Amino acid sequence: MLLTDTRLSAPGRPGVSAAPEAPAQWHRALTLLADISLFIGTREVWTEAAVRRPAVAAVISVCYASILVCGVLALVVRGRRSLARVDLCVLVTGLTLALCAFVLIHRGTDESVLTAQAARDLVAGHGIYGRPWPWLFGGRGIALTPTVTGGYDYTYGYPPLAPLLTAPLLWLGHGGVPAMAVSTGALLVGTVVLWWLLPTPWRSAATMACLGFSMIPMYGRLGYPAILALALLVPVVVRWPRIGRGGRLGYAGVVQAACLGAACAAQQLPWFLTPFLLAGIYA
């Protein structure tokens, strides 16, 4: 028996290859759930694409096939590396579907049109706060924000980062399209960053949370500044226990601090997260 083993592993002869390490069952289940979550909301986009843009409908059809294949592979692949490749395929499929939906659906909201108008005034050299733009509302499905005094708010009420990022994209079109492009692009980049930062078995959770169920991508297509803030918070929150480890901030800590500041400059919700984050770091 020893002689046989020696011959199998001798130079110039093929050795006995070890079987790939099997992935955990919960990893398979998470990949499958992320894959299935991409189905939700896709039918509506495909139906609209089939009427307006057949080429986009063809891309969505390929994504449908990819979802089916990835679902089968998530159950049958034997190795961890193979399942990690399936996770990557699910991510690419989700990103492609989000881009297809953005190309088709441009239903702006008050946030998107206000952000785009603030960017236009910024480029024109005007101030963006305290300036009412009532002509943006009414008759086009743009909702009005009522105030406690019985009137309506026609001004921009968010921090300035979103208009600053929207200004270079004003060439994309009228209305809130440039703002929607910023929020959708931020969501896609944030999803990729979150997917990369998470441990390998958990990466499909990023795809499911950010791109699945069509909820957060819908808010991205509507141009909500909160999506930009959410994307900027990803590198801050994922590895926040490492901030200041060893008594030094380090390069990664500086990047996280910059992302936190940028998130606070995009929308007000990160302001409420910051005290708890700092308390957790110094606790």
Rank of each mutant, 00 (worst) to 15 (best):
A58C: 08
A229T: 09
R203V: 09
W240T: 13
W240K: 11
Q267I: 08
S17W: 13
S66K: 06
L197Y: 08
G15F: 10
M1T: 12
G175I: 01
L30M: 14
G250M: 02
G12S: 02
P217I: 11
G157T: 10
D5L: 15
V182D: 01
W196M: 12
A101G: 07
L95Y: 00
W26M: 13
A24F: 12
V51Q: 15
P160V: 07
L136I: 07
L169S: 07
Y156H: 05
C264V: 08
A58F: 11
R80S: 07
G261S: 10
G157D: 10
T115P: 01
P159C: 03
A34G: 15
P11N: 05
A181P: 08
G127E: 09
L260M: 03
R245W: 09
Y156M: 07
A118D: 01
R43G: 15
V92R: 04
V236I: 01
Q117K: 05
M208F: 12
L197H: 08
P235M: 09
F276V: 10
A252K: 02
A74H: 05
L2D: 15
G212D: 10
L260H: 00
A257H: 01
L188C: 03
V236S: 03
P163D: 02
V254L: 07
A29M: 13
W46S: 14
A50Q: 14
A24H: 12
Q256P: 00
G150P: 00
T191W: 06
C100D: 02
L83P: 00
M218F: 13
V45G: 12
I243H: 12
V69Y: 00
F39E: 11
P159Y: 05
P201C: 12
